[in-house]
Amino acid sequence: MKRIKMGCTTLSIPAMALGIMRMNQKSVPEAQVAIQAAYDAGINFIDSADIYGGGKSEEIFGQAFSQMRIKREEMFIQSKTGIVPGKRYDFSKEHILHSVDEILERMQLDYLDSLVLHRPDALMDPEEVAEAFDQLQAAGKVRFFGVSNFDTAQFKLLQSCLSQRLMFNQLQFSLKHTGMIDFGMHMNMVDKPSVDRDSQFLDYASLHKVTVQAWSPFQYGMFEGAFIDNDGFPKLNQELQKLADKYEVGKNAIAAAWILRHPANIQMLVGSMNPQHIRDSAKGAKIRLTRQEWYDLYLAAGNYLP
Rank of each mutant, 00 (worst) to 15 (best):
E105S: 14
I83L: 07
A64I: 06
R72E: 03
E105C: 15
V100Q: 01
M75P: 02
A132T: 04
R106W: 10
P85W: 11
D121H: 04
I70E: 07
F91D: 06
P126D: 02
H95K: 01
D134S: 13
E102L: 11
R119M: 10
A122P: 04
Q67I: 07
E131S: 10
L112G: 00
G62W: 15
R72A: 07
A130E: 14
Q78E: 07
V84N: 07
E94T: 15
F65A: 04
L123D: 12
F65N: 00
D90W: 12
P126A: 03
V84F: 13
Q108S: 09
D50G: 06
L117R: 00
R88F: 15
V84E: 05
V100P: 00
D125R: 01
E128F: 12
E94L: 10
Y111Q: 06
G53D: 04
V116A: 08
L104P: 05
F76Q: 09
R106V: 03
Q67D: 04
I60L: 08
P85R: 02
T81I: 04
S66A: 09
D121Q: 05
K80N: 08
E73Y: 11
V84K: 11
A132Q: 04
I60H: 06
G62D: 03
I83T: 10
M75Y: 10
F61M: 04
T81F: 11
L97P: 04
H98S: 15
G86R: 02
A122W: 12
R69Y: 12
Q63E: 11
L109W: 11
E73I: 11
E94H: 13
P120D: 05
Y111C: 09
D90P: 10
G55R: 08
G54I: 11
G55V: 11
E74Q: 13
D90S: 11
H98C: 12
R119N: 08
M68Q: 12
D113R: 00
Q63L: 11
H95F: 15
A49L: 01
D134F: 12
F65C: 07
A132N: 05
D134I: 08
K93T: 12
M107Y: 13
Q67K: 10
Q135C: 06
Q108I: 15
F61E: 02
F61Y: 13
D101Q: 15
I60T: 01
P85N: 10
E58H: 12
L104S: 08
E74N: 09
L115M: 01
D121W: 05
D90L: 08
G55L: 12
V129H: 05
L104D: 01
P126H: 02
K87H: 13
F61R: 12
I60G: 03
S114N: 08
Y52M: 06
G82F: 05
K71W: 02
F61H: 09
E74H: 05
R69E: 11
R119V: 02
D101G: 15
V84W: 13
H95S: 03
I96V: 12
K87Y: 14
Q108H: 15
S92F: 12
P126G: 08
V84L: 09
I96T: 09
S66Q: 09
S79G: 04
E105M: 14
E105R: 13
R88P: 01
Q63N: 06
F91C: 06
V116T: 07
R88N: 13
G54D: 14
L104R: 03
E94A: 08
L123F: 08
E105F: 14
